[in-house]
Design a protein around this nucleic acid. Structure first.
Lengths: 342, 342
DNA sequence: CGGGCGATTGAAACCGTTTTGAGCACTCTG
DNA sequence: CAGAGTGCTCAAAACGGTTTCAATCGCCCG
């Protein structure tokens, strides 16, 4: 059943039917009701492909995911962000199109998305320092929202981020207040913007208390269980091991815990652990009682909000790029305690 | 730059240009070269929306993801599957569209996808027993491939699955051979098809050795760290605790390990653990040496293959629905050992 | 009573491709 | 040399909607 057939059945022109269904004011209310009823009765749904061609809008948003080297993106955090963004798209009748491409094809993919008109805008994931994608997208004129920020970029652009610096600063202060002075950092990859900011927060907090950072206590790697384990294992083997560790994710925190326990120590007693908790629906940090003390910020909610920002940007480009900074909560769990007496 | 403009620039008709670019045989080779060169020079890319309308094909595949109650799907396994499928789509110039919808809208979403013509086919995730989606999709005539199988469905349909029964049977046998007789099962939700099959494999292996199943050793829940922890904790508190545990995922295995260690026991000594390892790119089961003994099957590869099957089904419906069963490897890691002497 | 206006509807153009059905200029074939 | 192919190209018709512009009708107003 297409528009023309429906129109014929109703003895009306396609024009009127189209207008009736799209809520244009000039159609007689009685006619509209008749049309709407007939559409429902005949189960008419306008063909998306035709709408897209006629309106020149794709009614779709793209997410480009590089694979291979930067497979970091295939991670639970990404899945939850996508789920959040997807909710927003569904509510607004937009499609979410995911492009999984080899790293070296990334730029070509964005250009293709633009020139072939597959999407009306994109969301940028996991920005790095001086991220080239921002310049690229501005150049080709594709609306975009960045999940995170890209240190080093000067021109304004639309982003949504968690205050990573503040979160890690507070977490570090919390440990310092508990009497810890040897605090390890198991960070994400430090060419990622969020990791840079977390490190800054950590260093800031130490600096304020006059504690010199120790390179032997600072690790940077992908946020996997293994790397959390290894970093922690290495730190615990030091002549002066840390009494507290800051982990960039729940998963690396689990690795850290494994290392602590493997060393015959107890988390929350000999070694305190604080993680950053993205509040993943799949990997909850406990239910009633949090397992880990954590800085928490829902990445799913971030996905919802970022998508809303993008749809707004597409519909109202004249409003210009907006920004939004979310604060993380500090959640007290069972993985921290006062520094052990030396 | 669109087709008409390019044609004018070349002094040709749109027809010829279109044919030249699409490799039709009737165009003069010299002309074709001229056209191709001009297209490249002017950076011409045909508008996807127009192609879709003209050809009647969406050049897109849908993945519908219910949220809310069945949020199990927002998990790392899903992310990796999607990544694999996405690679296949990209290579074939298909778009992958993800629909994240409330559970109750799932059926309406499939119907909409079909009647509005957004996609040419869909992939069904996480099938349950007698999964209603299979009947629905057949009814509305939407090509589909199921990742997994749906016990109880009689009509033939296209699926790709891991031999879950065999995998868990082998894992159980492996433990039995090591002398374990009290073997716990920390399974996924048992309305999920894969979980049913795993349970069957486990029970089969016990049955062959004449070991009666013990309800106190069988758990079924979402595959989270917490639930692995709780199930294991409960089992270890039994008067006759198990000496080995079979876990449905790496994550629940990590929970199990935490419980074992919290009880002051050692994994691979007092308690052996085998997990099912989906070979996630983000959560590797060790690198050189596997942490866990595991039944392994790459879910990413499954995604690639399932997508290929779907594209084939779309292009050649006359070939009928195909099926494919993948076998899991048994990987020996550090988490298993002989049953401790009583 | 004629012009103007608001309310409603429709014809036709348009979006940018693909595809159908001819047409033209040559070359073979019998 | 007529007729049948080839080889190549193009005009026009889809595809299924939206949108522009014009038309009709009834009614009000001066």
């Amino acid at each position: 059943m297409n528009l023309k057939e429906l129109a014929t059945k109703l003895g009306l022109s396609p024009t009127t039917v189209s207008r009736a269904l799209n809520g244009y004011p000039e159609v007689n209310e009685a006619t509209r009701e008749r049309v709407v009823a007939a559409a429902k009765r005949h189960n008419y749904h306008p063909n998306t492909r035709a709408i897209r061609l006629a309106t020149g809008r794709a009614m779709a948003v793209g997410h480009v995911i590089p694979i291979a080297t930067r497979h970091e993106i295939v991670n639970p955090v990404f899945a939850d962000f996508i789920a959040g963004a997807g909710e927003t798209y569904s509510r607004n009748d937009y499609d979410m199109v995911l492009s999984v491409v080899p790293d070296e094809d990334e730029e070509a993919t964005y250009r293709g998305l633009k020139s072939k008109g597959n999407v009306d805008g994109v969301i940028i994931h996991a920005p790095r320092m001086n991220d080239p994608r921002i310049h690229l997208l501005r150049e080709i004129g594709m609306p975009f929202v960045v999940h995170g920020r890209a240190t080093g970029t000067v021109d304004p652009y639309c982003w949504l981020d968690v205050n990573n610096r503040r979160a890690f600063q507070r977490a570090t202060e919390f440990l310092l207040d508990l009497g810890h002075t040897r605090i390890g950092l198991v960070n994400g990859l430090e060419f990622m913007d969020f990791a840079i900011r977390r490190r800054t927060g950590y260093l800031d907090a130490l600096g304020v208390r006059g504690i010199a950072p120790d390179a032997a206590l600072m690790f940077s790697d992908e946020m996997t269980e293994i790397s959390g384990f290894r970093a922690t294992q290495a730190m615990l083997a030091l002549p002066q091991p840390p009494t507290a560790i800051l982990c960039a994710s729940m998963i690396s925190g689990m690795g850290a815990r494994r290392a602590v326990e493997a060393a015959g120590l107890t988390v929350g007693r000999e070694v305190s652990i604080i993680i950053h908790d993205d509040d993943l629906s799949y990997m909850k940090n406990g239910e009633d009682v949090p397992i880990f003390t954590a800085t928490r910020s829902s990445v799913r909610e971030a996905g919802r909000l970022a998508a809303e920002m993008l749809l707004h940007l597409i519909a109202h480009p004249e409003d210009g790029p907006q920004q939004r900074l979310l604060e993380a909560e500090l959640i007290i769990g069972q993985s921290t305690g006062p520094a052990p007496k030396a």
